[in-house]
């Protein structure tokens, strides 16, 4: 199973991005093989970023997303794709991975309301 974290830079000690759909990069890690991959997200500009990014997660067979926030529509698609969404803590991607492994991250409780005029 793969875990995905939106990140500001393509490195393990990058901070987690403030957004899900409009992040520039994703850190993908295969939890079995520990293999790490950084993904460019082409959807950081333009419309329907959340939906398209959630589709990107499904197409990469992601099972877990750790994110600071996530819009309503992206949450709906991630849920439909059986992807678990955890609330990231304000720290690096590496630290968030460790928190996930330790089981200390909480599930994302409330999707942010989508602001359609941004």
């Amino acid at each position: 199973m793969k875990i995905a974290i939106p990140v500001e830079q393509k490195k393990m000690d990058s901070m987690v991005s403030a957004t899900f759909g409009r992040t520039e990069y994703f850190l993908l890690m295969d939890l079995q093989t520990q293999e790490v991959q950084f993904l460019d997200s082409p959807f950081c500009r333009g419309q329907s970023a959340g939906i398209q990014t959630a589709q990107l997660m499904i197409d990469h067979q992601v099972g877990v997303v750790v994110t600071a926030r996530c819009g309503e529509k992206a949450v709906r698609l991630l849920n439909a794709g059986n992807i678990q969404i955890f609330q990231a803590v304000k720290a690096t991607a590496q630290e968030n991975l460790e928190f996930y492994r330790a089981g200390t991250l909480a599930l994302l409780q409330r999707p942010d309301h989508v602001c359609i005029y941004t």
């Binding site: 329907s48 939906i51 589709q55 499904i58 529509k73 709906r76 059986n82």
Partner: peptide, 18 residues
């Protein structure tokens, strides 16, 4: 063009608002 249809891995999901 409006990303109103998505693939969940097992079926199509439709976003009416899009």
């Amino acid at each position: 063009s409006f990303h109103a249809l998505c693939w969940t891995g097992s079926r199509i999901l439709h976003f009416e608002q899009n």
